[in-house]
Design a protein around this nucleic acid. Structure first.
Lengths: 367, 367
DNA sequence: CTGTTAGCGCCTTCAT
DNA sequence: ATGAAGGCGCTAACAG
């Protein structure tokens, strides 16, 4: 059913070979057909407005330093010619680049998507563009991306977590711009850190189960080998259960964060520990998958089995019964990171900081 | 519970003011303390390796054009000094920028996230970086982002949909790089188009309901006023129902794409048309919300009411009963766009194309 | 195969 | 308040 239509109409497709347009004066016979689709530069605006390029630069970037008359003339000329400054050139000359590099493990993870959403919205409004890279929990790839980003001279660098290769650490420590490590709070940051303690999120779950008097409990993590944050949560949970209930919880490690794995984990846990009274999950989707499976098995929630999620996705409020869950500050992180960066850039003496945004237990009916 | 710790330790925070480092020879007394943390440049690599800067450039970018001996010397020197090329400078000189601008309506929409995921992965591997912008279905914001992206001289520009302001159209038509309009196939693209027909996706749903012999049917769209793609689907659905069943379907317009709205829409539809036999939703989450609500109301699915989703999210396969849905080619779009761009950039005579990736009906048990 | 040379387009002192 | 001039760091013709 797929169809492909070739479109033969000529289009200014790939960049014209350098030589064709290099010398604006000497147009060779061959490219007469192509009416030099060269982008308009500041020099032409200057010519049209009857001023010098320097004045154009000033009129556009700091209008208050230019007389009102010239400013108007320049702006009109720029508008008429459809002038758009070349930011590559501007960045080279200005030593500052309105670029912020952000590295996340995954773009499809809705937590990081929410963070990026807030960051772009806030930073775009101030004229910054985001360079976004994803490393899929691969530390070497993270280092490659960080290296690549550094070579763009960004105004700031944002990276997820505080656990990096030596190379990445060296790079970030030497970076001549603010560096923000977000989403974690368990270790000391290289520069600024904005996040929360995953360990504490896990502890919160363990403490809640203990308070409810659940004796046999379990925890379902996901790809614990890769995801240090998920690991920290499971450790916090185990620690607290051990401490308050005096026993080791059963810990399962799902192969992914998806629903199907939650269902599988539920079956596995009930097989290994039939009298399990409550299960905490490393992600709401796992929890929802387990709830669907529980429904199929005829288990009542929370009477037979209590279920606690993590994430507070939209769906959590709408399941049957509504899912109790732990809410990380996903969008707050994005907003706080963006604001911190703007502050650091605006106020040279601004200091780095280490912010714990905390987590909240959202109590609904499933646990 | 939130806490903020100020970290007083000195850090190379904001870019040093230009003047401090402008003249490398004349270091003023004030900044003696700061041991000129200037990034190493190609010139220094050249000096250390005992060659000219041009040779360093060649040894690093096209090693095959340099003698093995020098290549080794240069690479060693670069590694030892921790040299990272300045891409801003490289881009200015080279007239090509390894940047691809991508504009999507929303980063948190899992469809676009999947597309972006594939695009970054493929393009990053070839040395390109993605500039990502989101406009939240605001055409003026889309135009601002497009303008900003053009001023980075990107190697390619990718935009969602084929419905833009005149300004955006002008900009994209004049762009000296390949332009891809993705996710739609209903209109003619400006350059290359890669997507599918939303109208056809809607028709498919309508046709399926007609084939099943459902007489009273309804459609639940979401923010139809903003989302042209959702609108096209609802129109295709209505068109087909009218054509095959000879009647107008009930159309509801949800205020968002979230679960809660699906539940609300279900109640509203059953009130306005109590004998509704089947409902198609503009998004799986709406459909899942409606299924949860149906369960609360004691309605059996599909016996009392058939439900069809759109999106084929992970969750669709795991609901009770599993959700039948229409699957758009979200990740295929990302892969196809990335490959098209690489092809266009590699083969100067490559043409633009108009690709319909099609949709599929995934039949499970809910309809 | 290698070095020399001349910019890429803009910003920013400096002088007027 | 405005213009002239130099340079940001690198690439790409060209000559050797």
């Amino acid at each position: 059913m797929n169809s492909v239509t070739r479109i033969p109409r000529p289009h200014p497709a790939s960049m014209p070979p350098r030589t064709e347009t290099r010398d604006r004066a000497a147009v060779t016979p061959t490219d007469r057909s192509h009416p030099a689709p060269r982008r308009v530069r500041m020099e032409e605006v200057a010519r049209v407005a009857g001023v010098s390029p320097a004045t154009v630069s000033r009129a556009l970037k700091s209008p208050e330093t230019v007389s009102e008359r010239l400013r108007a003339r320049v702006q009109e000329a720029a508008a008429r010619l459809g002038y758009a400054p070349n930011r590559i050139a501007g960045s080279l000359a200005g030593a500052r680049t309105p670029l912020v590099g952000v590295i996340v493990p995954s773009l499809t993870n809705s937590f990081f998507a929410a963070t990026l959403d807030r960051m772009t919205t806030i930073l775009e409004a101030e004229g910054y563009q985001l360079l976004i890279g994803q490393h899929a929990y691969d530390a070497a790839r993270e280092e490659r991306i960080a290296t690549a980003f550094c070579s763009w001279n960004p105004s700031a660098l944002v990276i997820t977590g505080r656990d990096h290769t030596r190379g990445t650490v060296g790079l970030l420590s030497a970076a001549p711009c603010p560096v923000v490590e977000m989403w974690d709070h368990d270790d000391r940051p290289l520069d600024t850190g904005i996040g929360f303690s995953n360990r504490e999120a896990g502890r919160l779950a363990g403490r809640y189960f203990a308070e409810q008097g659940f004796d046999k409990v379990a925890y379902v993590g996901a790809i614990l080998g890769q995801d240090a944050r998920a690991r920290a949560r499971s450790q916090g949970f185990a620690e607290q259960v051990r401490h308050l209930a005096g026993q080791d919880p059963l810990i399962a490690d799902a192969k992914s964060r998806e629903l199907g794995e939650g269902a599988a984990a539920l079956r596995q846990i009930l097989q290994r520990q039939p009298d399990t009274r409550a299960i905490a999950f490393s992600g709401d989707m796992l929890a929802v998958g387990a709830m669907f499976e529980a429904a199929r098995m005829g288990l009542r929630i929370p009477q037979d089995l209590a279920i606690l999620g993590y994430g507070d996705l939209d769906i959590a409020a709408h399941t049957n019964p509504p899912l109790s869950t732990i809410r990380p500050p996903h969008d707050e992180i994005g907003a706080a990171v963006a604001r911190h960066i703007l502050h650091r850039l605006a106020v040279p003496e601004a200091q780095s900081e280490n912010v714990d945004l905390g987590v909240r237990l959202i109590r609904r009916l499933s646990a």
